[in-house]
Write a protein that binds this DNA or RNA. Structure first.
Lengths: 216, 216
DNA sequence: CGATTATTGTAACGGGCGTTACTGACGTTA
DNA sequence: TAACGTCAGTAACGCCCGTTACAATAATCG
């Protein structure tokens, strides 16, 4: 057999495509979650044996983290850019949430978001991985908040809008969509929820509610 | 030692309080989730040894399901009744979501909802438990939907309101709150999100949006 | 061509999991 | 009091987990 990637160093070259193996690992982790995914299952899906896996990726935790990076850039970089670049706030949020609904139902099996559900309940030994994913979830809220702050400056949100809470609310809804997707919700249903979420955005021009309560 | 519960049958009576042991098991399952909670940890918390546990509760799965029943009646029966009995829709929803925020942060450790996160990612062997909890999550949405249908009849929601999607949206938000709580969000923050969620309720009198889109 | 270096497949390692024999202790019944 | 039935504690079972020796193989370097 010949090497798939050209090697400059000495030694026997690996006979599998590292990037392709990583993508296979991603699918397993996505469907099963971090701890339920076994090394045997990963090896089968990647088409390699344990020593090859450990030589190429370190151990289970580092393989998972690399898979998460791959997941983020492959599936979520574009939606977040869309939220950022679309000038109309409501269009931006609506499209982002609709894209999210598509991503969360993109695999055949019920999946949801790997970052939200991947380490939803893990044993204490996996605390490191759990914390790393929590940091990524925090990034999601920050993305929302920055977008809403810009909208506030642009006059697309009423003065006095609590953008922090608004961002938390959308982030909460986004994470809830993962649970729905994992439970087998159809993409169309997630899209309806995505549309309904736009009602959370207060309209500029209407006075901003001081305490968030509606008129009784 | 004397028996704690009076026995009418023959044989040596058990020396521990079954209900109290169940509550201890609930706390462990709540904090850790179904599979990460080990029998050793459960036995320690319950103050008994494996044979006593198996004699009293069957096995891990049946102990978990019984703990879930106990959890539902102890923590969620009252909030759901509140949603059902409070006549004013917005007050009902607002109070329910606020109560939910309190429940989801009621334990010292980060917890979230046991039904939402308890079997978030499990190995295929625990499919039965996973399915049972999914059915319970479905009940949650049904509760919302019935309440909104009543509100529609009472004129508290505009004619033509998509109550099914509205119920799904609140259910999604509720499940997202569990992820937030598990990530260590403070109760006050969950309460702010709970208040913000009221914006999802369309006001009666304003025309119901035919397609859910806001005015551009 | 040897020497070196990395990868490969097989097979196994220690450890922790859920679960259960087994033996002794205890309270009820006859 | 003697027989019976259930519970308690110790210790172990089989299984599967993530991980790794080990020897064979295949490429590059001198």
């Amino acid at each position: 057999m010949t090497a798939i990637t050209s090697h400059r160093s000495k030694g026997r070259p690996r006979t599998f495509d590292r990037a392709q193996a990583l993508h296979s690992a991603l699918e397993v982790f996505w469907k099963r979650g971090y701890e339920p995914a076994t090394m045997g299952e990963l090896c089968s899906a990647m088409g390699i044996n344990p020593p090859s896996l450990y030589a190429a990726f370190g151990n289970k935790a580092s393989l998972f983290m690399e898979a998460v990076e791959h997941y983020e850039t492959t599936y979520w970089a574009a939606p977040w850019r869309l939220l950022d670049e679309e000038p109309n706030l409501r269009v931006a949020v609506g499209r982002f949430m609709t894209e999210a609904a598509a991503v969360l139902t993109s695999l055949d099996a019920p999946c949801g978001c790997m970052v939200v559900l991947g380490t939803a309940n893990v044993s204490p030994e996996a605390q490191d991985v759990h914390d790393a994913l929590r940091a990524l979830r925090e990034v999601s809220r920050t993305n929302f908040r920055k977008r809403f702050e810009r909208a506030l400056d642009a006059g697309d949100l009423p003065l006095g809008t609590d953008v922090a809470t608004l961002a938390s609310t959308f982030n909460t809804l986004l994470q809830g969509l993962s649970v729905q997707a994992r439970d087998g919700a159809a993409r169309a249903e997630l899209e309806r929820i995505a549309e309904a979420s736009l009602a959370l955005l207060p309209h500029a021009g209407s006075g901003a509610p001081a305490d968030g309560r509606g008129r009784p």
